[in-house]
Write a protein that binds this DNA or RNA. Structure first.
Lengths: 311, 311
DNA sequence: CACCGTTACGGTATCCGTAAGGATT
DNA sequence: AATCCTTACGGATACCGTAACGGTG
């Protein structure tokens, strides 16, 4: 059994059972991948993939288990490589961050600016997605770290570290009556068409809960995956936006009037997710501390240790 | 990085930095091992071993960490192999049990007899040692399971499962006064020379504690690593033996008089130790259940899961 | 027909053995 | 002197690429 064989089956599984795609991702030719898979299956004496003639159409029960164990093995192996790179040149490497639009657009810029100054040699990669995707990317090692608000707190392979709480605000055209009504209530908001986040996104469920508990059916006319789109349509007068408060900085935003709605919705907590058992390079600890200054390396290590972290 | 390279450095570390011995254990020639190690060190750019000229004299700090991660990786890889073998022929394979003399001699025979009847194709291997060695053998994967009484309850890489409690009894020549004294006390015992277990062995520390608490200095004239030796010298009239109660079966032992000393010493608990994250073949669960019938597969799985077990 | 996986084949690199050479104790 | 690790070299093997073939939708 060789690590390369495990890499092959893992990649094929990740590419929806497409060997050609897996070969490309692995930077090898299709036949090579085919061969490695066959050799592994022969050596183990276990079919991993279900074949319909010459097409892969699924994984066997045993295959799923083997794939899971292969991921573990490869993760462990990666730890050795990362650790070594860390020793040699802590100044070069890659940091891949999986996160949602709101974080990438409004929170990360200042963090990344500071990080780049400290580690100019590290190349950064931001992978965006919805919270589920973000969690998966970190869980399978494609990303070093996940930053998101929901759905990820229960992922079995991630250790979650709470960073900060936030809430929503209301954005509307400057002359919109909602900006002056007193007090601001859910009933008042529900009188107008609403623009907010796509379901299962940045705290969207908290918005639903609030209206549901109050027995109000809001008129949601448009949902989007990112705050900028919501703001854009609010500027067009399509309705009032319910947006994460960090999407507004005090100095900008003359085109929209903004007021806090923190008293109407439950706080959401943004968390960092780290794959259990991962080796964390020094600069990742520094990144986390830049992101949330109270999360010192010692604190993070302690939280990881509590969660069955190996390394 | 290849698994074979990891195997090489692991074996060298296990063989006290002796490449020749490692090569033999790996069934390859010395130069091959040397090469693999060098290649790995080159690829990682990290020195793992400290060399004095041409001799390995230690591991670097980084090397120790890498060795630890390598063991993890190889363990995970082994899980895949074991799992596959389990699917193919659950009737063939090897079960390696690391345990102490007392278990091997007095408890395991009936268990192994039953096990062999159920799995005639599985070859069994018993590795004996003191409790520390037993724990290490299971922790590093040389043995599938550890069975012992102390020292192992705190091993960080093992999940411990308590099986049963036991205590000691007094063995002496049939006409020895200690067999009739009433009540049997530590003071009475301490009047005579004592033969018992080697220190750090099958519950020896419990014996020490008891005398210490009572403020008595027993006259221990001989210590041994196994119950048979103790019994032999008791038969020679060298003193009275303090022995694990399971070392006596009711029907045998006419040469020695026996009486219980359970009221004088704290109970000891015999535990099974299993490496965290190990894949357990079906027959291992059956073996455990034979050893301790209340430990069903479901219960064992549950205890392992609580302890950060992956597979 | 387009796509996908397998088989066949050949060059290259890797692995691992033997044999000989320096170091260390 | 004995032990031990390294270097050097050669043969077998494994790996991986290209090219051609066979199923599948």
């Amino acid at each position: 059994m060789k690590l390369q064989q495990l890499r092959c089956i893992r990649e094929v599984a990740r590419q929806q059972l497409n060997i050609s795609a897996a070969a490309e991702a692995l930077e090898m030719a299709q036949p090579g991948v085919s061969n490695q898979i066959r050799q592994l299956e022969d050596e183990l004496g276990v079919q991993i993939f279900v074949r319909h003639g010459k097409r892969l159409v699924g994984t066997t029960d045993a295959g799923r288990k083997i794939l899971e164990m292969a991921e573990q093995t490869l993760s462990q192996g990666d730890n050795i490589l990362k650790f070594s790179q860390d020793l040699n040149n802590s100044r070069s490497g890659t940091l891949t961050i999986a996160t949602t639009h709101t974080q990438a657009r409004y929170i990360l810029p200042r963090v990344i600016k500071a990080f780049r100054e400290r580690y100019p040699g590290i190349s950064l990669q931001i992978k965006q997605g919805n919270p589920d995707q973000v969690a998966s990317l970190a869980a399978n090692g494609t990303a070093d770290i996940a930053i998101a608000t929901e759905a990820i707190q229960t992922h079995p392979r991630l250790t979650m570290i709470p960073c900060y709480k936030w809430n929503r605000c209301i954005a509307a055209l400057p002359d919109h009556p909602i900006l002056k009504v007193n007090p601001l209530t859910l009933e008042e908001i529900a009188k107008y068409p609403i623009i907010t986040y796509d379901f299962a996104f940045t705290g969207r469920s908290r918005i639903n809960e609030a209206f549901e508990e109050a027995g109000i059916r809001p008129n949601i006319v448009l949902t989007a995956m990112d705050s900028d789109v919501i703001k854009t349509y609010a500027e067009l007068g399509l309705g009032i936006g319910i947006v994460a408060e960090m999407a507004f900085s005090p100095e900008n935003e003359q085109t929209l009037g903004v007021r806090s709605a923190a008293h109407l919705f439950t706080d959401s907590t943004t968390r960092i997710g780290i794959r259990k058992g991962a080796y964390l390079r020094q600069y990742l600890f520094d990144f986390i501390e830049l992101f949330s200054p109270n999360l010192t390396e010692a604190k993070v290590r302690h939280m990881l240790a509590k969660n069955g972290q190996t390394a």
